[in-house]
Simulated assay, not measured.
Amino acid sequence: MENTRLSGILKQFNYYKEVGDKTMAQLSFEDINYQPNADSNSISIIVKHMVGNMLSRWTNFLTEDGEKEWRQRDQEFEASYTSLDELLIDWQKGWTCLFDAISPLKESDLNKIIYIRNEGHTVAEAIFRQLGHYSYHIGQMVYIGKLRKGDKWTSLSIPRGSSKAYNSDKFKKSKGKRHFTDDL
């Protein structure tokens, strides 16, 4: 029997990855490196931070602390990507690490205790912590993307003025168990 809780978690992570993918697909490498000011992060820096976090949190996450000794968090906030390909390879590497760690989990794993900086979390709590963290940063990426593209931005959700038509289409379907990402 499928574990619907873990399946739903994986769908949510996939959704946010896809939002990040679709954001970057609309942008040039120059746009991805844009910083409104010195204290702001570019999409490039956000990606670098997310990848560092993913590799640290999800590598051997059931047996090792989620904050690895080899992680250089402060360096994640220094721009260093020299090409879009390099950035996208890292982006994929981080997500692969996450999906490889979560995909084999069983329902019984969700209550196991793991540690992040010596603070105990159930596996479920750690997953939800990271889901919130990544969606926060992907929202920042979308916002920067919208700023850069202006009226050339292609909406990643229901475009303004389209809610009525979108809802009408949804309510034409019979009630049923579905995930909101099934139609994306």
Rank of each mutant, 00 (worst) to 15 (best):
M1C: 10
M1F: 03
E2C: 08
R5W: 09
G8H: 14
I9S: 07
L10S: 05
Q12V: 14
N14C: 07
N14Y: 07
Y16F: 15
K17L: 14
V19G: 02
V19N: 01
G20E: 10
G20F: 02
D21F: 06
T23W: 09
A25P: 06
Q26S: 13
L27R: 06
D31A: 09
I32N: 03
P36S: 09
P36Y: 12
S40N: 11
S42I: 01
I43H: 05
S44M: 08
V47E: 02
K48W: 02
H49N: 08
H49R: 07
H49Q: 08
V51L: 05
N53D: 09
N53M: 13
N53S: 07
M54G: 05
L55I: 08
S56P: 11
S56K: 10
R57E: 01
N60I: 03
F61N: 02
F61V: 06
F61M: 13
T63A: 09
E64F: 08
E64T: 02
D65W: 04
D65A: 09
E67L: 11
E67Y: 12
K68W: 07
R71A: 11
Q72L: 10
Q72A: 04
D74M: 08
Q75A: 10
E76M: 11
F77V: 10
A79Y: 06
Y81R: 04
Y81P: 02
Y81L: 00
S83W: 10
S83Y: 04
D85Y: 01
L87I: 03
L88P: 02
D90S: 06
W91T: 03
G94H: 10
T96F: 04
T96A: 10
T96P: 00
F99T: 12
I102N: 00
I102H: 02
I102R: 01
S103I: 05
P104G: 12
P104V: 13
L105G: 00
K106C: 03
S108Y: 07
L110I: 04
N111H: 12
N111I: 14
I113V: 14
I114Y: 01
Y115Q: 11
I116C: 03
R117W: 05
T122V: 07
V123E: 00
V123R: 10
A124K: 13
A124C: 05
E125F: 05
A126Y: 09
Q130R: 12
Q130I: 03
L131W: 11
Y134L: 13
S135M: 14
Y136T: 08
Y136F: 12
Q140R: 13
Q140F: 13
V142E: 11
Y143I: 05
L147I: 14
R148Y: 02
G150Q: 07
K152D: 12
K152A: 15
W153I: 10
T154F: 03
S155I: 06
L156W: 09
R160M: 11
R160P: 09
S163N: 04
S163K: 13
S163R: 09
S163C: 04
S163Y: 11
A165C: 03
A165V: 15
Y166R: 04
Y166P: 01
N167S: 11
N167D: 09
S168Q: 15
D169T: 14
F171M: 10
K173T: 06
K173C: 08
D183R: 13
L184A: 05
